[in-house]
């Protein structure tokens, strides 16, 4: 490689102080790495979402728990009951999106009440989130009692709803967090759909 002294590059192989003989592998690595890092996101950006929810769709939240998604939202993560896949309530998330609003549903193992779970979520998350609204109760059509807190700011609106997915033994049941975030000015347009969605959540089949 060199003329005997480590680091000494023969003059005919120099290019701006670099050894031209190593240029090819270095460029190969750089190009492949950049293709993987930026090529996939670029391709992802040009492929549109095409998985809109339809009337009659029912989300599978695992262990028999369900929710009815608003019609016309993109289901970006999660399974429908009709998919017949095995959903683990504490592992599989649901994500719905429409315009600048997203609904993220996350299950977790948690011993305690829905209010305690929401407190734990707020403690663990970004302190800058400024969830300042007072806790409110939300009862679903099936009778599940959840706790809701909301926040508004220059960055948009956020609503957090926490449930324990059992009416008979809520303390040991899996917890469910519904996180709705909307860009400024959009929450009011979808608030009716979101309320109907939250009220459609049902507990597991064992209830």
């Amino acid at each position: 490689m060199t003329t005997g002294i480590p680091g000494w590059v023969p003059v005919e192989h120099r290019w701006f102080g670099l050894d031209r003989r190593s240029l090819k592998p270095a460029l190969f690595v750089l190009i492949v790495a950049l293709l993987l890092i930026y090529g996939w996101p670029a391709l992802n950006a040009v492929i549109p979402w095409d998985n809109a929810t339809k009337a009659g769709d029912v989300l599978d939240l695992g262990d028999g728990a369900t929710a009815v998604p608003p019609v016309g939202w993109q289901l970006e993560s999660g399974a429908l009951v009709s998919d017949r896949t095995e959903v683990v309530p504490t592992q599989d998330d649901v994500k719905l999106a429409k315009g600048g609003t997203t609904i993220q549903m996350t299950g977790a193992s948690f011993n305690g009440t829905a209010a305690q779970f929401l407190d734990q979520v707020l403690t663990s998350e970004d302190p800058e989130a400024h969830i300042s609204g007072a806790p409110a109760t939300l009862t679903t059509t099936s009778g599940l009692v959840g706790v809701v807190r909301s926040a508004s700011g220059t960055g948009g609106d956020e609503l957090l709803a926490a449930f324990k997915m059992s009416q008979s033994a809520p303390a040991a049941a899996p917890a469910l967090l519904v996180d709705v975030s909307a860009v400024p000015g959009e929450f009011q347009q979808v608030s009716g759909e979101i309320e109907a969605f939250l009220r459609s959540i049902t507990p597991g089949a064992n209830e």
Partner: peptide, 26 residues
């Protein structure tokens, strides 16, 4: 952290768009 994390995130979303969330999950 330089290559696999951003590449996997994007490619997983591509599969979700092409196969649907249930297909991508599998």
């Amino acid at each position: 952290f330089w290559i696999a994390l951003p590449a996997n995130t994007a490619l997983l979303e591509i599969w979700t768009k092409l196969l649907g969330p249930a297909g991508a999950n599998t």
